[in-house]
Design a protein around this nucleic acid. Sequence first.
DNA 1: GTCGTGTCGATTGTCAGACAATTGGCACTG
DNA 2: CAGTGCCAATTGTCTGACAATCGACACGAC
Lengths: 235, 235
Amino acid sequence: MSDDLTRTPGSLLGGERFEPRRSLAEQIAKHLEDLIVRGVLRSRERVQEQRVARELGVSRGSVREALLILETRHLIEILPRRGAMVTDLTEHSVNSLYEVIVTLYTFMAKKVAQVWQEDDLQPFLELSAQMRCEVEAADQPAFFSSTFEFGQSAIELLKNPYLEEILRDLAPMALRTRFFADTINRNAMVEGLEFYDSLVDAALHRDLVAIERLIHEYYARQQRLVIQALQAQAA
Amino acid sequence: MSDDLTRTPGSLLGGERFEPRRSLAEQIAKHLEDLIVRGVLRSRERVQEQRVARELGVSRGSVREALLILETRHLIEILPRRGAMVTDLTEHSVNSLYEVIVTLYTFMAKKVAQVWQEDDLQPFLELSAQMRCEVEAADQPAFFSSTFEFGQSAIELLKNPYLEEILRDLAPMALRTRFFADTINRNAMVEGLEFYDSLVDAALHRDLVAIERLIHEYYARQQRLVIQALQAQAA
DNA sequence: GTCGTGTCGATTGTCAGACAATTGGCACTG
DNA sequence: CAGTGCCAATTGTCTGACAATCGACACGAC
């Protein structure tokens, strides 16, 4: 953990597209986010601004901003005068997280099913096909990325900025817990594929009841897996 | 707008109770939040860090943090290299906001109705009574404060930190729009009282259907009022 | 007159260095 | 072993600085 964020101000050659080049703080946040999601930084581990600043070769101010960002993503907790620490994953926090996720995803999916018209669902069908390929190729990273785009497409369709931001802030935690679950679920990709397929199908038929059932079942299972993994780790 | 945040480091005499003395950034955020919610700072108005820092007698760094906080509360929008501006209130953004709020409040209320036991609902009954008094006394600030505590009590009961934080971040916007609605609804307090009363009643009977209906109806009306006020202001 | 283009001031993004306040741990004492 | 006091480490905040970028304005071309 001794990277060095290249900070080439305006290099369009950097490959970062045309995006307004994320601020340094966001890059730092992203970096730390990865470490936390992948479990390199463990629960309750301290994250000291001075240390991070030194290691990444940036100023304390920027790290401070990054920590604020990570706090809104529920990845760290900042205690006044005591610094930041990685949030703890407990059975209770996982349950809480999934309650909220299920509520919001259900709302989102139902809404999509209600408002779609013409070929709004085209992107979902394509993603579904793509995911099928990725499962066959056993390309887990690509599959992950596709599930992410799935949610992304739904958000674009609804154009609800509040929902969008809330889900964006919740996503890293969802990913973090999922990282756990998949360690004990070799079948994760197949199950995921089946889930998304059914979801698209239900949306096509505007079957709200099925949507609610599908999401509840899928995430109930995910939740169980995460908690199992958590207990396994504790033991 | 030329206050001066007294920054007495450890003065317990400051009256702030035992709370770990909110950080300066949070005080600044709270200050600006008030200005925005009350409409002193209008939609799309710029909020310049240098200027705020000068006016409040604090450093730019602290203002910067405050702006980050306000962004998570959806009160300002920070554009890279272009600074912060107060978020715009449009028909679309109001609709989006209320969609999310209704979804989350419905979830919350249903959950409370499902899990309460013994005298969990006591605080709500007391608040309800208190609100009745406040309506009779036409004490609008107190009434506002009570509705706030109402939500607070529900959150305490559920102990879901994610829901708690999401709602806390949404609250200022809810308040801001409400400020609008109440300018054209002289009956707001009576309606509110009736709503909360019915809600407590439904929760007592664990009547989930009624809860869903009540919340949808109440906020549909609120939403209409806000949008009316918005249009009236535009004209 | 409208449309590019160059210049300039204002503002943001980031850095370095500084200092007081607070925390947590440690040694010391009874 | 509990209580006390001290010290190092870290956070919260400030000041001052500078490059990059933005918005506006003036200027010149068509």
